[in-house]
Amino acid sequence: MSGTVRPEPGFSPERLAFFTDAIFAIAMTLLAVELDRPDEQELASARALGSFLVDQRDSYLAFALAFILLWSVWRRHHKLMDRIDRLSNAFTGWHAPFLLLVAFLPFPTAVIGASATNPMADTLFAGTMAAMVCCEAVIREISARTGLTTGDPAEARHQADGSWAVGLWFILSGVAAWLIPYAFVLWFFAPLASPYGGALISRLRTPHRDPHDVNAPRP
Rank of each mutant, 00 (worst) to 15 (best):
H77P: 06
V214Q: 15
L31M: 09
W71A: 15
R83A: 06
A144R: 04
L204I: 08
R218F: 10
A62Y: 01
R6G: 00
M81W: 03
R218T: 13
A131Y: 03
F52P: 06
T29K: 00
N215L: 14
V5Y: 05
L204C: 09
V73Q: 08
L61Y: 07
V5M: 12
A114E: 08
E14I: 10
R75G: 09
P191D: 00
L16A: 09
R37F: 04
G113A: 04
W71I: 15
D122R: 13
L53T: 09
L186P: 07
R157A: 11
V33W: 01
E34W: 03
L80Y: 02
M81Y: 06
L53Y: 12
R6E: 00
E42H: 12
A156T: 15
Q41T: 13
G50H: 14
V185N: 11
A121N: 11
G151P: 10
C134Y: 12
R86H: 13
G93L: 11
W164M: 13
P106Y: 01
F63K: 01
D39I: 11
R218Y: 12
T150Y: 02
S202G: 13
L65W: 05
L105I: 07
G162S: 09
A165C: 08
Y196R: 15
V73E: 01
D58N: 12
F189G: 10
T149P: 04
Y182N: 13
A193W: 01
I68S: 12
A126W: 03
G147F: 08
